[in-house]
């Protein structure tokens, strides 16, 4: 739904293939919303503590992770890997894909004073920052600044999709059985994104290097988010979200 340049240009086939494999955002939104509604229904009918805002955010992140895993499994490149390598790649990049999912939604969300959740709900930014502590406040502001820079760049949905593959097939992940294959996929995606930017934005010759710079900023943010989640988990404030906790442990191990 994001503004994507309508072009008669000859776009890299790989980029078009990536976009074709994207999940239906509205389907994901309805499934996660249904899950949360059931969760809150169970909460209200049982004697357990009502979910805090942070607890709800953890459930949303946990559910989003399920869809991220489902997306990865649908990628042809990913299917070529054995499950051991698939796990290592996802253990490595889960927080970056979560942060990218959040930020890319803000890039195409036109209201400055709210943030848009994957469920379609909007959260008032001022009240969130008022409730948030120092660390979470810094995280939300950092994400917002990055989203604004990507908005100024007019990042489009095809570039976001390429980001996902560059994040998933990270050549820096060690101890892979098929290291060479992952490096090869990374370089193929990187080349396709470069070709795409030169083809669609010829007037912006350093667009590709700017995109890679923002990808590094996203990685820094995701590490900060992991640190925060670890801290909250140690305080016993993260509800029992199996997948989210497993990913956190695997990355921190």
């Amino acid at each position: 739904s994001s503004p994507t340049p309508h072009t008669g240009l000859d776009l890299p086939a790989l980029v078009l293939e990536f976009v074709r494999c994207e999940q239906d955002e509205l389907l994901v939104r309805s499934k996660i919303s249904t899950h949360l509604a059931l969760l809150q229904q169970n909460q209200s009918s049982s004697s357990t503590e009502p979910l805090t805002t942070f607890g709800l955010m953890c459930h949303i992140a946990d559910q989003t992770l399920f869809f991220i895993v489902e997306w990865a499994r649908s990628c042809n490149f990913f299917k070529e890997l054995k499950v051991g390598d698939q796990m290592k790649l996802l253990h490595n990049c889960w927080s970056e894909l979560l942060v990218l999912d959040y930020i890319s939604r803000q890039v195409h969300h036109d209201e400055q004073d709210t943030i848009l959740l994957i469920t379609g709900q909007k959260v008032d930014l001022t009240s969130l920052l008022t409730q948030a502590g120092v660390t979470l406040g810094e995280l939300v502001r950092g994400a917002r600044q990055l989203a604004q820079r990507l908005q100024e760049l007019q990042l489009d949905c095809r570039e976001i999709t390429c980001f996902k593959y560059l994040i998933l097939f990270n050549p820096d992940v060690k101890l892979l059985e098929n290291q060479e294959y992952v490096e090869n996929v990374y370089h193929q995606v990187s080349g396709a994104l470069l070709e795409y930017t030169l083809c669609v934005y010829p007037q912006h010759v350093d667009r590709f290097s700017q995109l890679l710079l923002h990808l590094r900023e996203l990685r820094v943010l995701s590490t900060q988010a992991e640190d925060y989640l670890s801290y909250k988990h140690l305080n016993g404030e993260v509800p029992c979200n199996k997948l989210l906790i497993e990913m956190l442990h695997a990355k921190r191990a």
Binding site: V69, V83, M87, L243
Partner: peptide, 18 residues
């Protein structure tokens, strides 16, 4: 203590569209 089975591994090994 046997390690808890990985949920991620279960998801990755599940039949497609499960």
């Amino acid at each position: 203590e046997p390690e808890e089975p990985s949920l991620l591994k279960k998801l990755l090994l599940a039949p497609p569209n499960s």
